[in-house]
Design a protein around this nucleic acid. Structure first.
Length: 963
RNA sequence: GCGCGGGUGGUGGAAUUGGUAGACACUCAGGACUUAAAAUUCUGUGCCCAAAAGGCGUGCGGGUUCGAUUCCCGCCCCGCGCACCA
């Protein structure tokens, strides 16, 4: 018997497939197209490990399945070889980036080829090839012409280790996304792409994409659209205004102070003489603080009073202006109206600096005996106070009525001087206690409104809860003695459980947490004529009213900033711009592209904020394309993400020398149907590529607005120890070693997919690898036994076995097809394993006597296996006598007639508990099944002496007797 | 804090619209083959109980239902992302 030897067959078939060009995509589309793409890799110095390989294995299974299902498939591969990682590797290893890339690319390509992935290598692209980056530069010029590329001097993230600036997206928690070092801010003149112009479309078009919710929400978050208004506050004194941005204009009456950021241009101007020294000190301190320090979370609020006041445009009240670094200059207007009652950050600030807190939004809650507001009856206004009353033992006093338990309290009468007077009166009336140590408000204002049945009127109740601490337990006679209600002291931990009113519970929570800031929706209070409006209504109305006076306008803000794309590094596509002292920044004429990256010897960045190209006189000195006078080339190169923002388009037409791609070819293949890769590019590549695609659409270069219809984020493979695999940890597992050990690429591929759901992270399992190999080996051996049995012609023919073989086969064809459509690769493989186990059992029954049935089963299973293990399935397919490639064969069809069972297995339950199981003819009627169930030995015993109250029959599944 | 995922045997993980929980694999144990080992092959493997009978079991507590991993309410825990964005 021939032994399964992956090494032998795998290279043999890889060579054959390449020679026969069976994976080449043809532009002619008589068949439906399918574009399957995995992120094109950085050919870094570290080889690919099994985690990377999973990504390509998923894509390859998709591509192969689609091919066998009759799709014309484009499955290309290329190299994202520009950029920092490649250059850093080159510098570290003292080689030129070019030769380092060539070496790494060769290695990656060898790794991919040995895995047997079905790439169309005739479309291979390399972003560092002048034939490619010529068009990257072409796109830069397109953006430049459209005013979507511009230069600006500003503070930018600077990585002192990589010696270059970085885009906002490329800084994670204050660390460089590549090298992990702390970044700084540096003021430099830089190139930007105006992605902010597309913010709305980038946000809105997300809805229709078949992407994971996680990535979509990350992008939404990053774009950070917020709708609100700008409101002008006149400064009391000088003829100046401060404009603030807010999403909550409905809380304007609660704006008890303004805060501007330390960088705000008015900060020093408005500061009063008395406060000047302090303010200057604060601004200086804020400037010296790194942005990382300033952005540390939950940092204690700091700030300083400017001495100036502004006028609230709705109620003309004077509010103090503070300067604090929790307001960021880069967002909105760099100034806010602080509403401590309804914004936690302002609340914390107000608490710390003892600024007034005014409730203007009250949560609207229901109470007992209150129905929906009626328009036909009068509305009574009522103010109430309630007492969270405690003694020195830490107990709280509750009032107990037949149906309800709550805090003491009641109406504020006209005769009461204020809330506190009313509170004392109520507490004494209801409980008899008279001796109070302290009384202070502890809740936000709460409103209840609606039709009050007992009164026959609407009632609007507004109230606040106060903490009342008893000084002694002195009491006088009260309503308790009159028998109106009872009172009881309960420990703090019990209070929440006993309260029966929603508003009392809310107040208690605010009291316990010490946070009476209410950030939710509600109705307006303390807001003049706007009182009673819902917050949503008030938002529109207040803005509309102020707008007519010129004090406000609607406004949308975004968190996303323009994409900084210039890099002070050598290894990138040169920015095709010439700087002329007369004409400024001038585009390199199209016919002079590409601007070639010169070969140099000293490519190490200097760190002075200029690219190594700045030292190359032959490169920089040129003539201005406009005036012909002496001019200098731009020396910065483009961010590597520029190259990857359009590569998926180039695959449609990779060898075009006259344009980036032919429109018809792009429209024919794109958008990408399945884009497979990790989640790490959520707000970088995946956002940039969408932006470029939209620009191209607007320019009529393509007919689609989104590059990737479906995005599949594969789960990470962790090392067996649960750690992330990395070269530095020394825990990487590479496919090369596994193949070398004799497992072969097919086993590795099976393992990659069988180990768990493709989109979930898992630890690599060394033992599992052997199991994957065992499965393929069992298939191999079974096929060998079948082929050898041919000669024996053992006539142990058994029609039952033949029927069973067909049943098993069709059941598996159905299951694997369904699973592949659902991307459930692990269960698809499991059902193939199951089929192999079944075939082993059937083999013992007829010793392969029914040649035809066996041949069908084996051939079908080989086809089902082909997308996962292309080599062994091809080899055995040929051993079975087929002469053309299995990968060009038609996916087997399910014959429904074999899915029907002769017998069905029925579970028998009594009161929902499983008590037995019977097998009955599949055609049996409900009556027959139920009778058979009753007769089952165990069940019959349990049923005797009981009346069956109800019988539930679920067809094909179970009978449940309720007794 | 906010957003998005998840919690099922010793392990990775399966379970159509609520309908026999634990498919498949790993691990482990035992049998066959072998001088022996490896490989292979067969059997067993959720927990409690010596076994049977029975009971308990899908993070925790409730609820709906004849029946809940699945639906509802309230919690706990883990992972990822964002984070003073007004």
């Amino acid at each position: 018997m021939k032994r399964y030897n992956p090494k032998e067959i795998e290279t043999k078939w890889q060579d054959k497939w390449e020679a026969d060009k069976i994976y080449q995509a043809v532009d002619d589309l008589k068949k439906p197209k399918k574009y399957v793409l995995e992120y094109f890799p950085y050919p870094s110095g570290a080889a690919m490990h099994v985690g990377h390989v999973r990504n390509y294995t998923i894509g390859d299974a998709m591509a192969r399945f689609a091919r066998m299902r009759g799709y014309n498939v484009l499955h290309p591969m290329g190299w994202d070889a520009f950029g920092l990682p490649a250059e850093n590797y080159a510098i570290k290893n003292k080689v030129s980036p070019r030769s380092a890339i060539n070496k790494n690319t060769d290695r990656f390509k060898r790794q991919l080829k040995q895995m047997g992935f079905s790439y169309d290598w005739s479309r291979e692209i390399d972003s560092t090839d002048p034939g490619y980056y010529r068009w990257t530069q072409w796109f830069f010029l397109l953006l430049f012409k459209l005013n979507l590329a511009y230069q600006k001097e500003s503070l930018q993230w600077w990585c002192p280790f990589d010696k270059t600036v970085l885009a906002n997206e490329q800084v994670e928690n204050g660390l460089c996304w590549r090298c992990g070092n702390k970044v700084e801010k540096k003021s430099l003149k830089q190139w930007f792409f105006k992605i902010t112009d597309y913010a709305d479309r980038l946000l809105d078009d997300l809805d229709d994409l078949d992407w994971s919710d996680a990535i979509k929400s990350m992008q939404r978050n990053w774009i950070g659209r917020s709708v609100g208004a700008e409101i002008k506050f006149r400064i009391d004194g000088p003829d100046e205004c401060i404009t603030v941005f807010t999403t909550r204009p409905d809380t304007l009456f609660g704006a008890t102070f303004l805060v501007i950021s330390p960088e705000h241009p008015l900060a020093l101007q408005i500061t009063s003489t008395g406060q000047r020294e302090e303010v200057e000190k604060y601004i200086k301190a804020a400037a010296s603080k790194s942005d990382i320090e300033r952005q540390e979370t939950n940092r204690e609020k700091t700030g300083v009073f400017s001495g100036a006041y502004a006028i609230n445009p709705v109620n003309y009240k004077k509010v103090p202006i503070w300067i604090a670094d929790y307001v960021l200059y880069g967002y909105g207007t760099g100034a806010i109206m602080a509403v401590p009652a309804h914004d936690k950050r302002d609340y914390d600030f107000a608490e710390k600096f003892d600024l007034p807190i005014v409730d203007v939004i009250a949560p609207e809650l229901s109470g007992t005996g209150i129905n929906r507001h009626r328009d036909d009856v009068e509305t009574l206004e009522r103010r109430v106070v309630a007492a969270i009353l405690c003694n020195d033992k830490g107990e709280y006093l509750l009032l107990v009525e037949p149906d309800n338990t709550h805090f003491l309290g009641g109406d504020v009468e006209l005769s009461d001087a204020d809330d506190v007077a009313a509170l004392k009166r109520q507490v004494t009336e209801e409980s008899g206690y008279t001796d109070f140590a302290s009384i202070k408000p502890v809740s936000s204002t709460i409103v209840m409104e609606g039709y009050r049945i007992p009164k026959g009127k609407n009632q609007r109740t507004e109230g606040v809860f106060y903490e009342v601490v008893l000084a002694s337990d002195k009491r006088v006679a009260s309503e308790v003695e009159e028998g109106k209600h009872e009172i009881k002291w309960v420990p703090k931990s019990e209070v929440a459980k006993q309260l029966t009113f929603e508003h009392h519970s809310l107040a208690w929570e605010q009291y316990v947490t010490g946070n009476r800031c209410y950030e939710g929706e509600g109705v307006l209070v303390n807001s003049g004529t706007y009182d009673g409006l819902s917050a949503a209504e008030a938002r529109d109305k207040i803005i509309a009213d102020l707008e007519t006076k010129g004090f406000a306008k609607e406004r949308v803000n975004y968190k996303i900033r323009d994409w900084l794309i210039s890099r002070q590094r050598y290894w990138g596509a040169p920015i095709p711009i010439i700087h002329c002292s007369k004409d400024g920044a001038v585009a390199v004429p199209e016919d002079q592209l590409p601007v070639l990256l010169p070969e140099i010897t000293d490519y190490e960045p200097s760190g002075d904020g200029r690219s190594p190209l700045a030292k190359i006189a032959e490169f920089i000195n040129t003539d201005c394309p406009k005036c012909g006078g002496p001019a200098k080339r731009e020396t910065d190169t483009m961010d590597g993400f520029a190259c990857s923002s359009w590569y998926f388009l180039r695959f449609a037409d990779p060898h075009n020398n006259s344009k980036p791609f032919d429109k018809d070819k792009a429209d024919l293949w794109l958008p990408v149907d399945d884009y497979i890769g990790g989640a790490e590019h959520a707000v970088m590549h995946l956002l940039y590529a969408r932006f470029w695609t939209k620009v191209m659409f607007d320019q009529g270069l393509i007919d689609f607005k989104e590059p990737f219809s479906a995005l599949r984020n594969q789960g990470m493979i962790l090392a067996p120890d649960g750690q992330k695999m990395s070269k530095s940890r020394g825990n990487t597992i590479e496919p090369d070693g596994l193949i070398e050990q004799g497992y072969g690429a097919d086993s590795v591929r099976i393992m990659e997919l069988f180990i768990g759901p493709w989109n979930q992270a898992v630890n690599w399992s060394v033992e599992g690898m052997a199991g994957a190999y065992r499965f393929l080996q069992r298939f191999w051996n079974l096929t060998q036994e079948f082929l050898e049995a041919k000669e024996e012609q053992n006539a142990k023919h058994n029609p039952e076995v033949s029927r069973e073989l067909n049943r098993i086969t069709h059941r598996t064809i159905k299951k694997v097809g369904d699973d592949l459509n659902a991307l459930s690769y692990n269960t698809a493989i499991a059902s193939q394993m199951e089929m192999i186990n079944d075939l082993y059992k059937q083999k013992t029954l007829d010793l392969f006597a029914d040649r035809e049935a066996w041949e069908f089963s084996i051939n079908s299973l080989l086809q089902l296996l082909a997308p996962f293990a292309p080599h062994i399935s091809e080899e055995l397919w040929h051993q079975m006598g087929n002469t053309t490639s299995i990968h060009l064969s038609q996916w087997p069809a399910v014959d429904e007639q074999y899915l029907k069972l002769d017998q069905m297995s029925i579970a028998i339950q009594i009161n929902g508990k499983l008590r037995g199981e019977i097998k009955v003819n599949a055609a049996a009627s409900e009556e027959t099944v139920v009778e058979a169930a009753k007769a089952e030995e165990k069940v019959a015993a349990l049923l005797t002496g009981h009346e069956i109250k109800k019988t539930i029959y679920v067809s094909q599944h179970l009978v449940n007797f309720v007794i």
